[in-house]
């Protein structure tokens, strides 16, 4: 996957101009830039730093502090396995193990075809439907390990 800053430059500039008018623009800009490009590689971070008059190190410090930001590309579908307390005691680690087997990747990695990324997340507030898995913005509740393969197949 090669990165091209030019691919969404106009949108990026627009959103930076919009956020710059408000205070504390960095985190909202990073959110939207990640939405546009999928991830936050160095070239993009340095561009944002330059446009917001911030040191590059500050931007990188913020990106690496917040779990939501990623400097590596992710797959088309983000498979998030909740390991909040309720999901943990209701056995979501078994689902995580199964997903890891099915996809052949560890948490934090993406499949070679960039179809899926596997992630562990901390409580997505679906405790009453534990154990829960969130793929992109859809929720799968009360998941059992045997259902994992079928759930994955719903995402191309």
């Amino acid at each position: 996957m090669s990165f091209s800053l030019a691919s969404h430059l106009q949108e990026l500039d627009d959103l930076i101009d919009r956020e710059k008018a408000r205070g504390g623009a960095l985190i909202p800009v990073l959110h939207q830039a990640q939405e546009l490009y999928g991830y936050l590689p160095r070239e993009l971070q340095d561009y944002i730093a330059d446009r917001l008059d911030l040191p590059q190190s500050t931007v990188y410090g913020v990106v690496t502090f917040y779990a939501f930001f990623t400097t590596r590309p992710r797959g088309r579908h983000r498979v998030g396995v909740c390991l909040g307390t309720a999901c943990y005691v209701r056995g979501n680690t078994k689902n995580l193990e199964r997903l890891s087997q099915e996809l052949g990747v560890c948490p934090g990695e993406s499949t070679p075809d960039w179809r899926y990324s596997l992630e562990v997340c901390r409580c997505i507030g679906l405790c009453s439907q534990a154990p829960a898995i969130m793929i992109d913005k859809s929720v799968h509740s009360k998941v059992q390990p045997d259902q994992v393969a079928e759930i994955l197949s719903q995402y191309e």
Binding site: R42, Q56, Y60, G61, T64, F65
Partner: peptide, 28 residues
């Protein structure tokens, strides 16, 4: 007022580093 270095990561993994933890020469 150079800000070549910052804290990166968090918790036990927190570290003083340049952007993308490059050698200082590749920073400002």
């Amino acid at each position: 007022s150079v800000n070549a270095i910052s804290m990166i990561n968090r918790g036990f993994r927190a570290k003083v580093a340049t952007s993308f933890d490059t050698p200082l020469q590749e920073s400002n």
